[in-house]
Design a protein around this nucleic acid. Structure first.
Lengths: 111, 111
DNA sequence: TATTCTAATCGTAATATTGCAATGAAACAT
DNA sequence: ATGTTTCATTGCAATATTACGATTAGAATA
């Protein structure tokens, strides 16, 4: 069906799934990488960097913005995007919460 | 088009995107949560837990298995799934690598 | 062997995602 | 004002994902 049954799951589970989607496409990972490296950039730079058409890049940027992981400000005819520090930290905490929940059962593990 | 242009991106970017997909659906997050909590379980338990049909759960399990984040062993008529400790650690490192690449520009940030 | 139980697979329908050409909007320059 | 530059939006085609009913495969048991 392609329709996720969000109501079956907890708010945390839905939220994590949403945030994970930011990283779930290589183009968006590449955008995040680039933003981390340059600490601010514009759409045009990314079109060069990624090799995707301008509307495609713009769309990925909007998704990242909707998720909240990046933010943008208008600079004359350009737009500057950068990582949202607060959200970034929230996401980091969310993932580390999960990662740390796993206790390696070194004493006779499961399967 | 719906066709990801993987060849435009680096191996790391594609790999991270692939792994992120494990977390990019609330049902899979719920499965991971459950596996973390119980440290091993079977498909049937998950059908109860998730409220999704058995084939749907089975499909999500296979995706998680394909990604490598979980592993399963046959136990009579049942299958026991659990977290793959090695892969789990790899994924943890991958995400933390990215998370730690961000230096908060507290001194006059970007946008 | 026949039955039963559990989970995987197949087939299919519906929705989501990815990508781009064309177009639009906003700021700036001439 | 007209053109230019930069990015967003629209509209559409193609592929991917999600979900489930029906069926199949495999193991345990009667």
């Amino acid at each position: 069906m392609g329709l996720t049954k969000s109501d079956l799951f907890s708010t945390e589970q839905n939220e994590l799934a949403l945030v994970a989607k930011a990283f779930a496409h290589p183009a968006r990972v590449a955008i995040i990488h680039f933003l981390l490296k340059t600490n601010a950039c514009v759409n045009g730079d990314l079109v060069q960097e990624l090799g995707l058409a301008q509307p495609t890049v713009s769309q990925h940027l909007r998704e990242l913005k909707d998720i909240g992981i990046i933010q943008g400000t208008i600079e004359g005819p350009r737009v500057s995007y950068c990582i949202n520090p607060v959200k970034w930290n929230e996401i980091k905490v969310m993932f580390n919460d999960i990662f740390d929940q796993f206790k390696d059962p070194s004493l006779g593990s499961c399967c």
